[in-house]
Amino acid sequence: MINTIIFDFGDIFINLDKPGIDKAFRELGLTEWHNDLNELNQLFEIGKISELEFIEGFQKHLPNASIEDIRKAWNKVLGDFPEYRLDFLQSLKGKYRLFLLSNTDKIHIDHFEHKVGMSFSRDFYNCFEKVYFSYEMGVRKPDVESFKQVINRHDLSPKRTLFVDDKKENTDAAASIGLEVWNLQVGKEDVTDLFAKKIINL
């Protein structure tokens, strides 16, 4: 019987606009997504480089873009957060131990909190026993260490824990250490389908 749920954040609760970020960087003059930008993103997501170092890495390819230009383009990926998903999450509180485990960075989290407002973000965070962001943890999914940190710190039973994520590489990693998983298909499924799809039985 599942008693704990660990949720991803992007495309589970907040919608991501991937075409939007591509368009924003093209408008700044980025013709292709270079490999070093992927590496830069991963380092930023585990807190190994500062915000300024991250932005300066983009400026190597976009010398005419300001710090604010790049920050705004980077935040274009963050879409809306439908309130019905928060309502659903709040309905789970008290019935399950809830955790958030997200690959993210400080620029995105600061923007999210500013965009939705203090009251909404506080209500969201308060649903969880603990919120885990990769840039604070120093590790990111699909590294199994990210899951182990949550399991060990809270004495969770993997077989009684469900992990929900839209990326198969992440759910595969979680399953490899014994967690139950739901690889949510964005556009076809919604986190609110948790019970309708018999992911968890009422």
Rank of each mutant, 00 (worst) to 15 (best):
L78T: 01
Y132R: 00
Y132L: 04
I107L: 13
R153W: 02
L162M: 08
L194A: 06
M137V: 06
K148V: 06
N183A: 09
P19H: 07
E145L: 15
K93C: 04
K141N: 05
E145T: 12
S134R: 03
E129S: 12
E169C: 08
L43M: 12
A73Y: 00
N38M: 06
K72V: 13
D166H: 01
L86K: 14
L43D: 10
N103I: 02
I67D: 12
I67N: 12
R153G: 14
V144M: 02
K198M: 09
M118T: 12
M118V: 07
S176Q: 13
G94P: 05
W33K: 09
K115W: 05
V116C: 03
N183L: 02
A175C: 10
D110P: 01
P82I: 00
D193G: 13
S121T: 09
I177C: 06
E45F: 00
V181G: 08
I109Q: 10
D8R: 01
K148F: 10
Q59I: 06
D190I: 07
K167N: 12
L16G: 00
N183Y: 01
K188I: 04
G20W: 00
I107W: 02
T104H: 02
N201W: 12
F54Y: 15
F81H: 04
K141Q: 06
F81A: 06
E113W: 11
A174E: 09
R160Q: 14
V131M: 02
K60H: 09
L179Y: 12
D22Y: 09
H154T: 10
K167A: 12
H154E: 15
A65P: 10
S176T: 10
Q90P: 06
E145V: 13
R140I: 03
T31H: 08
R153D: 13
K197S: 09
F7P: 01
R160C: 14
F128A: 11
L40G: 11
G187I: 03
F120W: 13
I199K: 10
D8Q: 02
G138D: 11
C127F: 10
V150C: 04
